[in-house]
Design a protein around this nucleic acid. Structure first.
Lengths: 203, 203
DNA sequence: ACCTGAACACCGTTCAAGT
DNA sequence: ACCTGAACACCGTTCAAGT
């Protein structure tokens, strides 16, 4: 037989990340261990060290797939409202918040400050910058249409990002339980909040 | 002598919380252990279980002092700008962001989603609601002065909170490194961001 | 090159026992 | 009522050894 020997089926690195992503949504961010991820992937507890420097590196890898999902979801929302910079901004924000609610443990891993920033030139930085660039494009499109102020697009995009990110964080950590309970009410309130922001951005 | 025997000096519960708060800013949120907190407080590793159900309960206690500090800092900022609802909102936000930058590990403990929400009627909820109520008061004051829109004050306050909280989170987790580096630049940019929001709230 | 298994120093949590 | 110390099942990480 031409099969590889006792090794893992092809790509252990990816298998570990996928196992970790699954485990983190099940057991929560603090209920994940390198040893159990390895067990799910079907290797010994020391095998992951061939592919990741330490646990933090694995968590970073898991967070990266989260950023890819996030960018994808926002892109999709934008494409569904062509030529309408107002709807684009609002629905991209709703997609952002939706992901925070539906994959909250992953979201907290990505943004909760648990992963040490260590290297400033890391891949994680890249991923979050990409998502931000999408926002800048929406703003610039809206500026061309005369919908948004002629201020620095980076600044307006950061304002929108901060608002949406803050709301997503507060909602996904239960800090809004005293105002809204259901998922539907949270998403509906999000649109009101975002429209308050846009009225500030609009000239 | 009338001293208590081999027991701890009076209030172990408080000593544990203080030791934890100190340790968390030194070693980071994932470098804190119940056993080391106990050691710093000068008791055995099982002593904390008389005062806290488990590690999560101790972390909750630590986060609570963080919320108290936060409420205090915001209150102080408001008092320094009497009768000026615009400066009050901006500077309360800056105080919020300043705390996130200077006590980032504590801030991530409070808002990072690590502490299980479990009981919806917990003390933590109380603390964060209190900080929010301060915001509502600022908004209502500004509405009386004709500075802010006559919309639901709760909704406007949540909008402001989301913006400031999101910016604080992004800044304190290093997500803005590609735009701003220094602490000073981050705080200065915060005021621009906030003014974009207020222009939306103002009628 | 890739993986295993023993080993080490640490955890959180429980529980009988001490004062 | 409050604390200790042993015990248990788990960690992350390292390292010699196997194929």
């Amino acid at each position: 037989m031409t099969e590889s020997p006792a090794y893992h089926h092809g790509n252990l690195q990816q298998a570990l990340v996928e196992a970790g992503a699954q485990l983190i949504e099940e057991n929560g961010i603090s209920g994940i261990s390198l040893r159990e991820v390895a067990k799910i992937a079907g290797v010994s507890h020391s095998a992951p060290y061939r592919h990741f420097k330490d646990k933090n590196a694995l968590l970073t890898g898991i967070a990266e797939v989260g950023f890819q999902r996030l960018g994808h979801a926002m892109q999709l929302a934008v494409e569904q409202h062509p030529g309408n910079a107002r709807e684009q901004l609002i629905e991209a924000g709703v997609a952002y918040i939706r992901l925070a609610l539906d994959n909250s443990e992953m979201f907290h891993l990505m943004f909760g400050g648990l992963i040490a920033a260590e290297d400033p030139s890391e891949a994680l930085q890249q991923s979050s910058v990409l998502a931000f660039q999408g926002l800048v494009l929406i703003i610039q499109g809206g500026q061309k249409d005369g919908l948004y102020k002629q201020a620095e697009a980076n600044e307006l995009a950061l304002t929108a990002w901060s608002l949406v990110h803050g709301y997503a964080m507060l909602a996904s950590t239960g800090k809004l339980h005293h105002m809204t309970n259901s998922r539907k009410a949270i998403l509906s309130l999000a649109r009101y909040i975002e429209s308050h922001l846009i009225d500030g951005i609009a000239r």
